[in-house]
Each structure stands twice: as C-alpha cells, then as structure tokens.
Design a protein around this nucleic acid. Structure first.
Lengths: 173, 173
DNA sequence: TATTGTTATACTCTATAACTATA
DNA sequence: TATAGTTATAGAGTATAACAATA
C-alpha cells in the first residue's frame, strides 16, 4: 500500500542530537547552537513546511489523502471540464508524473477521466459522487483539525498575515 | 556532475496552464480558478519554499552550494568538535544519508572528518581553511543577493514577523 | 507539424535494516 | 550489549525523451 506508507514518512525530528548520550564520563552533552541557521528564511521555511505536511497527513489519515491529492481534488471540483494538462500545470505537476497520480485517484473512484468530444486527445477530469463526498469530508477535517490548530498557534490575524506574505513570495519572488 | 544538475531542477512553473493553447476556434482559454487552494497554508507554504530554494540555488551557483550543504557548513562552523550523528540529527538528516553528503563536501575540501581520540568510533567534523573561506563568501552572497531580495519584497519588519511565525510552526506545531 | 496522454527512465530525497569497529 | 559510521536498498518526488493517437 502506497499511501499509508506516506503517513509514516516524516519521522526524523531535528534538535534531538543530545538524546542518546552515555552521560558516564564527562557529561559534555550540550545542545548544538543553531546560530545563523535560525535566521535563514529558507531553512525555517522548509522546517515549517515539513511540520505542516506532517500534521496534514495525520489529520487526513482516515481519508488517506496526501496534500498533493487534496489539491488535485480541490482544483478539479473548482474547475470541472478541464483536461489533465491544465490541472497538472496549474499545480506545478509535470504531465508524465500526473498519470500515476490520476490512476490512483481513479482506482479509488474519487475522480474520472472522460474522453473529450471536441478534442479526442484530451481527458476531461471530473469528480465522482464519491469524490465529491470524500472531498467534503476532507475539507471539514482540514478546517476543524488542521487549520484550526494553526489558528490556535498563531492567532487568526497572524495566520492571515502569514498567508499573505507566503503568497507574495510564491507569486513574486 | 551532480550539483550543477540541481540548479536546473525547479523549472516547472504553476499557473501557466493557459499558455500553449490554439486560440483558433472559441478562445475559451481561461485561467483556472485556484479557489480554496490559495487559502490552504500547506499549499502556499510549499510553493513559497520552492521559490526560495530556487532563488537560493541561483544566488549560490558560483559556489555550487545547495541549501542543505550550506546548512551543514554553517552548523559545523558554529559547533566545532561535534560528530556526524550530532550534526546530522540537528539538521533532521538521517545518519545514513549524511554519509554521501559529507563525502561530497570532503572531496571538495570544504570540511574534514577527524577520528576522535576519546571515542575512536566518532568522526569529529571541522571546516577546512577552504571551507571557512567558501562559507564566508556564501554568507555574503546569501545576505546581499538572497535575503536582501526578500527584504525588498516584504520589508524588513514583515520579513522578521514571517521568520518568527515560521519558527513557531517549526518548533511548536 | 503540433499537442495530449502515456511509457520508460533517471536522479534526488528520504527511510530502514544490517554490517564493522569500537566501546 | 550498545553506539558511530557505513553500506545496501527501497520508496517517494521530480525531471526529460520519445511514442501512439489525434489535431
């Protein structure tokens, strides 16, 4: 099984270097200094992203949806009638890599490929009824478990400010 | 060549779906709606992280340092005399995966493994003179090209607020 | 000739088990 | 017995080239 493995993936936690020490002789077991590293935006950004994805996977474990799969379902729901190239490209997924992803979602009866009548090369993407139901449940889980926890941690206004700045980086950097 | 390839890696840009369309018949070529996706912190976080790493690689192309390699050099400089397990663990790198990374840095004469006299199982890590010089140049490039551009985009105080919130997520989420 | 979906393939990252040499 | 470094390996994620069907 491929998806359940994913949920176990982010196990290696940082800053645990000083744990498994034999404090027999001289207990020189001091935590390392991060120094300038904690000021590097890229470093902190990556760490935060891993934490957020890790929490997302935990919240979604009952539905077995990864962040990437969730984003595909959201985008197909919002843009019915688009083909694989359009959906994949919008998400920054390369067309060849999108095939296996769709195979997975389609095999679970969450979405379907429909040969376009206008252009018989294209596969139009739609959510199945089950796909719509699962996505609805996923949205609720994300809102009540995942995003809610972020609100608790940062506060509503800070969370919005964070989103604004990240979007600015993603779009203009 | 392994490192130069890395600099070419982040080519797939999102939201370009509507480019290669044949606007002959009905130009129904409309950009897709991101919808709720643009409110998902995980999605925006990931996109921003990719952009920041991409820019980092460009700024560092003359030194051929990846974000991960830069973080190792920074941490070894700040914590001389620590062994591989401690450095790797602090960075969230698994010990087996750290071996090839160190092989690379050592083959480029940027750092060195020294067998510890206290515990002959351990390899103490230190920067070579060349490693110190390269790191100094890397810091300057990061400050003047990379972080400076983030300051231009966000403003100094916003950039600090962003860093604070991301650190909070990385440490407490 | 160009584009859509697809296959094959390769490279990087990340993860686990097991070996060796030391302790 | 346990730990540090290492090897081997496997799985995701991401990248490119090329093919068949269709335009």
């Amino acid at each position: 099984m491929t998806v359940s493995k994913t949920a176990e993936k982010f196990s290696e936690k940082p800053a645990d270097a000083a744990k498994g020490r034999k404090d027999a002789g001289e207990p020189q077991t001091e935590a390392l200094q991060l120094g300038e590293l904690s000021e590097q935006l890229g470093y902190v950004l990556k760490r935060a992203q891993l934490k957020v994805f890790e929490n997302f996977l935990r919240c979604m474990s009952s539905l077995q949806l990864t962040p990437a799969q969730f984003s595909v379902l959201l985008l197909v729901e919002k843009n019915p009638g688009r083909n694989q190239t359009e959906i994949a490209s919008t998400l920054g997924i390369l067309r060849p890599n999108f095939v296996a992803m769709l195979d997975n979602l389609e095999s679970r009866d969450l979405c379907a490929r429909i040969r376009s009548t206008n252009d018989r090369r294209s596969h139009i993407l739609v959510l199945t009824d089950k796909g719509k139901a699962v996505l609805a449940r996923a949205k609720k889980l994300v809102a009540t478990k995942h995003e809610a926890r972020l609100n608790d941690l940062l506060g509503q206004s800070n969370r919005e400010a964070l989103l604004t700045m990240l979007a600015k980086i993603a779009n203009e950097f």
